[in-house]
Every structure is written in structure tokens, then in C-alpha cells.
Amino acid sequence: MATTTNDETVMDQIAMALGGGLIVLGVVVLGLIESLSGAPRSPIADGEIASGLTVDPNIRAGMILVGVIVLLVYAIYAFATQQHLGE
């Protein structure tokens, strides 16, 4: 049984790179930078943004949000142009 998908378009690549890229940047890359720079484990302390952070966690949350929006816009585009219907 084979699953062959070879019609990768530029729009696929933009959505995957930008959408997933922003999510990985916001969660993993900036998380690593925070850890290496000695930031506290929890970015929130007593309901407030903890001190000692390099990046505001809301900016990281914003990256996740924009990444998901990119994937959503791609999904709407794929829906509108009837792409990948066999998958």
C-alpha cells in the first residue's frame, strides 16, 4: 500500500515553512534561548510575567497564533482552489 503525494506547490511550501516555522520558533527556539539565558522555568509568576525573561511570553504566544493563522489561511486557500482532494 502506497501513499504518493508529489504535487507540492509553492503555496504548500510557504504555508509549511511560515506556519510551522513560526510555531517552532515561538515554542522551541525561543524556549531554548530562554533556558540557556537562565530564565525562570515558568514565564508567569503569580499571574504576572516573570522577571528575567528575554522575550515576553505573549510575543511567543503571538507567534503560535500567527503560525496557526497562516495554516488556516492556507487551508482556506486549499479549500477554495480544491487542492489535495485525494488526501
Binding site: 515561538g26 524556549g31 504566544a61
Partner: peptide
């Protein structure tokens, strides 16, 4: 989940 993950801020052990 987009709203929960960005607004709940249950980040006691980090953002994941």
C-alpha cells in the same frame, strides 16, 4: 485551543 493556549497562560512548567 488557539484561544485556550494563548489566553489561559497555564505556563507553570513552560509554554508547552
Amino acid at each position: 485551543m488557539v484561544f485556550f493556549t494563548t489566553a489561559n497562560q497555564g505556563w507553570a512548567n513552560g509554554m508547552v
